[in-house]
Structures are given as structure tokens and as C-alpha cells.
């Protein structure tokens, strides 16, 4: 059974028409897929069909270990979003972007396609001035 109903498919295709350029999705799974990998696999397949500008490649977490390590992917299912030239953006979705997360996923695809939303000043200068590694973790409450 398809994950997206007709209504959602149409809405998403409409939104994806705003893509400014191509985007590459790299989906990591493995040969013996558990339910989560299987469902996310269907998701990326269906999603990629909704725009000509989305190119999907499927990688095996075990067999393509070098590729996974190169992208610092240590768990699956994982979707890595790369730009039109295949360069990594660092954006990862682990698990199925269902519920409200579909919006973050689509937003990421649009941004990588060329809809940059640059930081405004003075924030941009302050961020550029950060001179050491910083690890930021954001915790979101579901209520």
C-alpha cells in the first residue's frame, strides 16, 4: 500500500515544483530490512518520484561501509541529503520523516535545491566569528 495518498502526493509535487535545482538523496539500508528500513525505503522511492529534480541512490549499510563511514552514518535507516553535484550537506534524517517531520524533510530538500535562507546580520557575523568546535543538541518536546 502506498505511503502517500493522492491528495498528499499532489500537494508535495506542487511544493517540489519550487525546487531551484536538483537534489540527491542517498538512502542507507541493508539487504535484510526490518520494518523501519522497509517503510523508509518505500518513503524515499515514492518521494523521489514526485519530482524530476530528485535523484535517489540506495546504499547498503553493510556492503557500502566505506560510503557510510565517509558520511559518518552509524545507524539506519538513514537519508543523507546531497546537493545537485553530489556534495554532502551534512543533513541527515534517521528514521521515517513522518508526522510533522515531513515538513522539515521537504524544507531541507527545497533549501538544498537552492532556496537558501541566509542568516541576517548581526547574527551572520557573530556565527562566522565562532573559533572553536561547538556541539549543539536541540531537545524538542512533543506537546
Amino acid at each position: 500500500m502506498a505511503l502517500f495518498d493522492e491528495n498528499v502526493k499532489q500537494q508535495i509535487s506542487g511544493i517540489l515544483k519550487n525546487m531551484k535545482g536538483p537534489v540527491n538523496l542517498d538512502y542507507f539500508t541493508q539487504e535484510f530490512e526490518c520494518a523501519a528500513c522497509r517503510e523508509t525505503h518505500s518513503f524515499v522511492e515514492e518521494f523521489a518520484k514526485l519530482s524530476d529534480r530528485i535523484k535517489l541512490s540506495i546504499d547498503d549499510f553493510q556492503k557500502d561501509r566505506a560510503a557510510a563511514d565517509g558520511l559518518h552514518i552509524d545507524k539506519i535507516p538513514a537519508i543523507a541529503i546531497k546537493d545537485g553535484e553530489g556534495n554532502d550537506t551534512g543533513i541527515r534524517f534517521y528514521g521515517l520523516p513522518g508526522g510533522y517531520e515531513i515538513n522539515s524533510f521537504i524544507g531541507s530538500v527545497l533549501e538544498v535545491s537552492g532556496h537558501r535562507e541566509p542568516l541576517k546580520e548581526p547574527a551572520a557575523s557573530r556565527v562566522a566569528a565562532v573559533s572553536r568546535d561547538v556541539h549543539i543538541q536541540v531537545f524538542v518536546m512533543a506537546t
Binding site: V8, Q11, N18, E39, F43, G98
Partner: peptide, 13 residues
């Protein structure tokens, strides 16, 4: 699996 799509978020500026 439900998708809570907020189409309004993506309306062009």
C-alpha cells in the same frame, strides 16, 4: 503512517 503536511509553510514569499 500519517503525514501532517503544512502546505502553507512552503508558499512562495
Amino acid at each position: 503512517m500519517e503525514f501532517n503536511l503544512s502546505a502553507g509553510m512552503f508558499s512562495s514569499e
